[in-house]
Design a protein around this nucleic acid. Sequence first.
RNA 1: CGGGAUAUAGCGUAGUCCGGUUAUCGCGCCUGCUUUGGGAGCAGGAGGUCGCCUGUUCGAAUCAGGCUAUCCCGACCA
Length: 490
Amino acid sequence: MAKVLTSRQENYSQWYNDLIVKAEMAENSAVRGCMVIKPYGYSLWENMQRILDGMFKQTGHVNAYFPLFIPKSFFSREASHVEGFAKECAVVTHYRLKTDATGKGIVVDEDAKLEEELIVRPTSETIIWNTYKNWIQSYRDLPILCNQWANVVRWEMRTRLFLRTAEFLWQEGHTAHESAEEALQETEKMINVYADFVEKYMAIPVIKGRKSANERFAGAIDTYCIEALMQDGKALQAGTSHFLGQNFAKAFDVKFLNKENKLDYVWATSWGVSTRLIGALVMSHSDDNGLVLPPKIAPLQVVIVPIYRDKEGLEKVSKVAVELKTRLEQLNISVKYDDRDSLRSGEKFNIYELKGVPVRITIGPRDLEQNQVEICRRDTLEKSNMHIQDVAEAMPRLLEDIQESIFQKAKKFRDDHIIKADTWEEFEKAIENGGFVSAHWDGTTETEVAIKEKTKATIRCIPFNNPQEEGKCILTGKPSKERVLFAKAY
RNA sequence: CGGGAUAUAGCGUAGUCCGGUUAUCGCGCCUGCUUUGGGAGCAGGAGGUCGCCUGUUCGAAUCAGGCUAUCCCGACCA
């Protein structure tokens, strides 16, 4: 049988797509630009959800749910916000279908036209702020720290599984505060939560920073982001946290009486991460054998594959395997014992490698004789033998070790691909090679746009704690005080 | 929304130029036997409104016209 995956180098985007389909994470749906997330991919999302949700609770947030449909009028109150999303909205115009006059098929009933069209949410700022207006009268009502787990729709022209689908799953936090300082703190707190989650659980190193004006969220005063680097050298925005100032409060007339008994508009933030993170995961760690999942979020951490000749042999192996499975499960490790007779062991090895299961334990007659098992770690594909009694005790440390080494490998790749450029020639060459390019920029949107037109690279972020140094803009030669990170991005 | 292409079984395809028996092949699927320490072998089997509509014709996957959908390159984007 042919090799499952073509080399990543030849056609990265096709490789990416094939991997996701073959690893049974997701596939394109019948609806253009939408995807079906299969159980394996979804359980990964559930793990991510569970961990993130715990982190949100710890930072004092609560979950709520707001409507999918947003009246068009809400949407137009914040001018720059509508401008940012208007071009990619799904719009509900009718509420009924009827049988076609010719008797063939179903058509939209023109009599059932809505007075006011409804927009399928591309993000929920508008409907949430319309609701917050009713919740807030006094500083005693603040802060409001709400999060929503939901789906949103953005009618993108070009789509890719997980990275850019017309419908995607995410969480969006929307908070209201009595002061700018408090809102800014919240914005920063949440970008830190995201960075922690992505680095510690997904093992993807990120750079924290702020967006340039051109890349900022529609309606925000400031956008903080975490940027990751994919194996093909393109950058991916992995999460954002926005300081919205009083823009939405003013648009939706959300005022409160402060401690000095004066009316003021509330200060807002919003922040979100999406199923796009799964795309980031795939493109950060995978190799030619398939996915490589960090143990902390892998739907399945350990798989046990039996090797046997006949029914009797299987029974012997199963006894040991089931015992081991139970012991591992007592340590909160998720284990699957795959004793299906319909697949041969070699095929199972390949399937679980494709799915990125961190550890495979193989047990066969040869092992039973020696009272040992074979352990193969997915990240390095190294095999070793271990006494059966020692496996349970060693497993937590092994999983941690795999988690760490996946992160270090990705970090080394990322660090090796941050290149400084001081002349335009260096800059063009570095962008062409892929990775982050650290360069001086005169701070103007015109220059940023001009660079994008010439090289397709955009400013990914202005890193926090960026060293201040004198320099000259890479394009215009005008004076600059700090370097920013450029890259071609997804 | 501009430019280009494609549509044949679950997937990938041959056949289309030059119309003519029962639409080709591979993967996958089902059954049986042999296998099982790195994607098995043999034998048998199921599966098709040839994207849709109209036309030309004795006869259309094949020719003509229209429609629809999808993909690629731009613009847009978490």
